[in-house]
Nucleic acid binder design. Sequence first.
RNA 1: UCAGUCGGCUGGAUGACCGCUGCAGGCUUGUGUCUGUUGAGGAAAGUCCGGGCUCCACAGAGACACGGCGCCGGAUAACGUCCGGCGGGGGCAACCCCAGGGAAAGUGCCACAGAAAGCAAACCGCUUCGGCACGCCGGAGCAAGGGUGAAAGGGUGCGGUAAGAGCGCACCGCGCGGCUGGUAACAGGCGCGGCAUGGCAAACCCCGCCGGGAGCAAAACCAAAUAGGGGCAGCAUAGUCCGUGACCGGAAACGGCUGCGGACGGACGUGUUUCUGCGUUGCCGCCCGGGUUGGUUGCUAGAGGCGUUCAGCAAUGGGCGUCCCAGAUGAAUGGUCAUCACGGGGUAACCCGUACAGAACCCGGCUUACAGGUCGACUGACUUU
RNA 2: CGGGGCGUAGCGCAGCCUGGUAGCGCAUCUGGUUUGGGACCAGAGGGUCGCAAGUUCGAAUCUUGCCGCCCCGA
Length: 168
Amino acid sequence: MRLQTLKRRAEFDRVRRGRKWSGKAFLLQGLPQDEPLAGHARFGFVVASKALRKREENATAKRPGAVLRNRAKRRLKEAVRLAAPQYALANYDYVIIGRYEALHQCFSDLLEELQLAFGKVNRPPRSDDAKAQSRIERKGSDRHTQRQSEILDTARTSASDLGQTHDG
RNA sequence: UCAGUCGGCUGGAUGACCGCUGCAGGCUUGUGUCUGUUGAGGAAAGUCCGGGCUCCACAGAGACACGGCGCCGGAUAACGUCCGGCGGGGGCAACCCCAGGGAAAGUGCCACAGAAAGCAAACCGCUUCGGCACGCCGGAGCAAGGGUGAAAGGGUGCGGUAAGAGCGCACCGCGCGGCUGGUAACAGGCGCGGCAUGGCAAACCCCGCCGGGAGCAAAACCAAAUAGGGGCAGCAUAGUCCGUGACCGGAAACGGCUGCGGACGGACGUGUUUCUGCGUUGCCGCCCGGGUUGGUUGCUAGAGGCGUUCAGCAAUGGGCGUCCCAGAUGAAUGGUCAUCACGGGGUAACCCGUACAGAACCCGGCUUACAGGUCGACUGACUUU
RNA sequence: CGGGGCGUAGCGCAGCCUGGUAGCGCAUCUGGUUUGGGACCAGAGGGUCGCAAGUUCGAAUCUUGCCGCCCCGA
């Protein structure tokens, strides 16, 4: 199955309203889709060259170029491609914003952090977000939360499986 | 062997697993899936120049304005690029660097310091004459020495003189005029002058040459969506003549009205303006705002690469043969692991690192960044034969 | 990707075209005024002029090359 990506500015802006979790290598945002596509989670990748600058470097330092920007993006994309079938929810949109450690963190650590991030973001929306959501579509809100909790349980069990395989 | 100069090439390799863009074919048509094939650079970068291409309908010539360039000759589609030469500067040398036209066309500036900063002048001084209170004052002559400064109106030496001075002479520099060599920049040498002509043009400027503007998010088409929003101009004050057709009046000549074609004229047309050609033109024309921000084309065979040969000192050009070599669009060309190679650290096991950097319409340059490896030519020093 | 602009004291700006002294306001510090504070008055400190070359006797200013930031464009 191909990795579905977000393509429009409006889609990225919509996901910004969702739950966030920030790691060393990336910031993950996730939100349920308005009209669920048939079993496809979608992902948007954002990597700014400014964000890849080392923390101790000041603003006068030279900005990282397109090579580093593209490499960070490709590593995150590959990590998501491997982790998504097990941990991402099918009816969700996600945005991954790259940070400096996306270049240097070793790949297995990156996968573990991504697994943790999906677990955090896949929880039901916050109370104020839920209110906003219910205002938009009042009928289907109860059904939504039920389904999410079910999927979350399965995600947790499979996450422990992954941990074992990597230790061995 | 060491130190150095110049030019070129390369810039990780192999394997395994999992993926992606485009193209071709099969299976399916819900647009997915399978097989094959293809896939970053010398700078793809900075966007500093020059073109092609597209739009502003367009083309040519002159003047004005603005901008760029600037030794000479050649190369080129063109250039601010390249090649060859000249001049100046640096280096023992190989070689490197130079925005390198004009300052007796004009204007302007040269702070501070200094007497004086531009038709030269005289602060400390030097020489001489006169006066006296005997080391000062006044007159005349001078610009060598001192001092200031980035720069003080040729330099060195000899003669000369009261002291001096191109005052005289020699050499060098400078200027003017022939001559010789060279396509030319320029070089060499001759004669004359007796020093007049300080620097800055990356200050204005003068001379010569070149240049319309914007850019593939250009531009064209399809689909969708929003609004019939605001401003300006105009709504006949804009025509004349010829040919021809319809209609009306009339017996006809002809008159009226109107359509079409042509000529002249008007208006508009790539900074302004003039001219020539050309195009458009009388009823919805221009500008701003609002909405859409999807798809297709543009989109890759080209001043193309490689090999060879000929012309030329070379840049480069001609001929012949051969090859087809990325076309993405929230944007593919990769990710992970292992082994080897190279470099550094460590007694060792082992650990760390592997340059600069990513096509976006395409070419020719320039500039900037770049670990390491490698080839060729040349220079200097030392040693050995 | 293409085009345009900016960089001067802690902050916001002059000065650059026409080259020689870097200045203004707020803020900071010191003193005065006040019972104390604010406001006000007087004074002081603080700037590699983004970085590097070149032109010039001399560069914040002129020229060239880098670096950073901001704005606009179907």
